[in-house]
Design a protein around this nucleic acid. Sequence first.
DNA 1: GACACGATACCGTCCAGTCGGTATGTTTTG
DNA 2: CAAAACATACCGACTGGACGGTATCGTGTC
Lengths: 191, 191
Amino acid sequence: MMTEAHRRKKQPIELRQHLLDAAAALSVRAGVGNLRLDAVAGAAGVSKGGLLHHFPSRQALLEALCEECLRRNDSRIEAELAADPVAPGRFSRAYLAVMTGIEVTEQERIWGLLSVVLFAEPEFRDRWGRWLAAHLARHAETDQALFLDVVRLAADGLWLADMSGENTDPTRRNAIVAHLRAMTLNGREAP
Amino acid sequence: MMTEAHRRKKQPIELRQHLLDAAAALSVRAGVGNLRLDAVAGAAGVSKGGLLHHFPSRQALLEALCEECLRRNDSRIEAELAADPVAPGRFSRAYLAVMTGIEVTEQERIWGLLSVVLFAEPEFRDRWGRWLAAHLARHAETDQALFLDVVRLAADGLWLADMSGENTDPTRRNAIVAHLRAMTLNGREAP
DNA sequence: GACACGATACCGTCCAGTCGGTATGTTTTG
DNA sequence: CAAAACATACCGACTGGACGGTATCGTGTC
């Protein structure tokens, strides 16, 4: 007896997205290694067969997850870049904004957390490294300076701290972010 | 048929360490989630039974791994603290030194990498957060300043970059480290 | 000889992936 | 344009291998 799931309007692309979201959420909760296909399918309201129709293997799912994660970062960076009129340090500023930006949706937050979790996978580490290197090369003219390196590194650290649940009080955190942003504009540390 | 492995001298404590080292190496290579008991035992030149004698369950092994990881960090920090005569920013300086210090042994490097991989496990993230919070509280007098926060965050970022295989050229890297260290001593960024 | 250490054999479970099927779109054909 | 033919989306039972854990026995060490 086929259930009425067959009868609902088919929305393959939406389902695909749902599956990725579900996979992201579950990975964040328990680590990528503990990601079970049944669980993903269940969370997306679909059977395991349905999941495997979209992602032919577990590995394929993970790669898609990784892909999506980088894609999201990328689009956010591009948006920041486009909105910034000041040339010097533009990329570093965009990087800072994206890494330390507050996520509004819970789902957005999850995708941020996922980056940390994916670092467990060596393949993802490489891809991330190449992504950053490529972007740095592209913005070499505007973002090649020691203090900009420091800013970006600190942004990484801040992001890591956020994700590891260290609740530094928000005012202090804001002060740090503002400080870093000022560095990208002034070229030196404010007193 | 008992092999000649029985005949070799028994060194339980050494074996325990070997097992942990092997587990660390394998985790780094493929992620904690893909850690197999057989593989660990094999890599340490012992049978699965031998492994399970020391760590009664997989979970126990992982916890020991986590414990050892924190313990190593801790002892290195303490060593740096003891060797530093200058009070202001002492903890941040020690933190910087440990996180960015070059590991001589390959095994040392692996234990550093392991921290990243363990971040996939939420439990470890919490523990790490608490560890850092405790240390910060203890050194509140000497290490409570905005620019020291930035230094420590950048140290995290640098460590993350190292671990993700981004090969920034060593001279540049050294410059950054020196720059950060100077910040802990001067209280501001050098020109 | 008592106990810690380690080896081997085995069991039970869990889970990724397969497979045959059904329902809903889309295109081709008479 | 209807109906057939094909394609896509999804279901759910099954399986086989992998892997964590147990039980038992041999072997060093004190």
